[in-house]
Structure formats: structure tokens, C-alpha cells
């Protein structure tokens, strides 16, 4: 059954490592949904979080192929129940009048979205959280008229038990 999988990859911070991994996905026809990369807690080691869509067999093949890359140190699947997964979304919404502004304010409060910019015609805010949460917030904003959205893609860390 096809579903979304989140994979954490720790890699040597070498020039070209991002291309190497992204290229691998393209070459093996694996579908990347999101990809993020940043520094890890260790110097010289980066962490990439990739979400892919596929069945369990696809996932196994992806993991093995990534593991095979010399720059890869570790590949871990991050199932939802055992990892904190979050992304950041910045959203710019059209605002016609005060009533709409107030409506958006109240939604933002419920969803813990932070207002970071305001003009007479737009409201810009960001929110952090699980992708589902962000998507439901976006759906709520649709009727107001979304001008622009920027999303980071998810990052993740394992839970301690």
C-alpha cells in the first residue's frame, strides 16, 4: 500500500552530497514529497529529512540505495508514532475588511499561527507543526483568498521512551 514515509539521513557534509542523494531518487524513480537539509549536532555531519511516497518495498529499496552511498552514515525511518515531525509554513492571505481580519485572527489563535506581517490588503503569518495541521489551516484560509504559500518541508527527530 502506498503511503508517505519520513526518512532521516545523516550524511558527511561534503560538497555535492545533496545532489548525490537527490539524484539517486530521480535515477531510481522514487518520488520525493519533501526534502530538507541542515546541520546536525555534530560538526561536519548534516541531517536530511526526506518524505517519500511508496509502499513498504519501495521504502526498503530507497533505504538500501541511500545507505549504499559512501557519504551516508545512517538511514532511519521515522514512523509517526515514534518521532516528532514538524514543518514550517508561511502563508499570505488577502484581507478585504476588518471582519475578515478578525476571523483570521481567531483562526490563527486556535492554530497557534503567528502574524508576522500586516498591510491594508494582506496578512502574513507562519505556523509550525505537523503537515496535516498545516494543511487543515491552509484549507481554512482558502475562502479568504491565499496570495502565496512557502513551506519548508518536514524535519523530524526521534522520540525518547
Amino acid at each position: 500500500m502506498e503511503k508517505k514515509h519520513t526518512i532521516a539521513i545523516t550524511v558527511e557534509d561534503q560538497p555535492g552530497v545533496f545532489t548525490r542523494i537527490a539524484g539517486l531518487f530521480a535515477r531510481r524513480s522514487f518520488n520525493i514529497d519533501t526534502i530538507t537539509v541542515g546541520k546536525s549536532e555534530k560538526q561536519g555531519i548534516s541531517k536530511m529529512i526526506i518524505t517519500v511516497i511508496g509502499d513498504d518495498r519501495d521504502l526498503e529499496r530507497v533505504e538500501k540505495q541511500i545507505n549504499k552511498l559512501i557519504d551516508t552514515i545512517k538511514v532511519t525511518e521515522m514512523p509517526k508514532k515514534s518521532a516528532f515531525i514538524a514543518e514550517l509554513c508561511i502563508i499570505k492571505v488577502a484581507v478585504q475588511d476588518k471582519k475578515i481580519r478578525d476571523d483570521i485572527f481567531s483562526y490563527a489563535k486556535i492554530y497557534d499561527a503567528k502574524i508576522i506581517g500586516m498591510t491594508d490588503k494582506t496578512l502574513t503569518m507562519y505556523l509550525v507543526g505537523e503537515s496535516e495541521n498545516i494543511e487543515s489551516y491552509i484549507r481554512l484560509m482558502v475562502p479568504f483568498g491565499i496570495n502565496e504559500i512557502s513551506r519548508t518541508g518536514v524535519t523530524a527527530i526521534s522520540k525518547d521512551w
Binding site: R57, E60, R61, K64, Q65, N67, K68
Partner: peptide, 8 residues
Amino acid sequence: IDPAEIGK
């Protein structure tokens, strides 16, 4: 020797 070959 290459785990990626198994099940490919």
C-alpha cells in the same frame, strides 16, 4: 555483498 541488490 551489496544489500541493495537483494530484493531489487
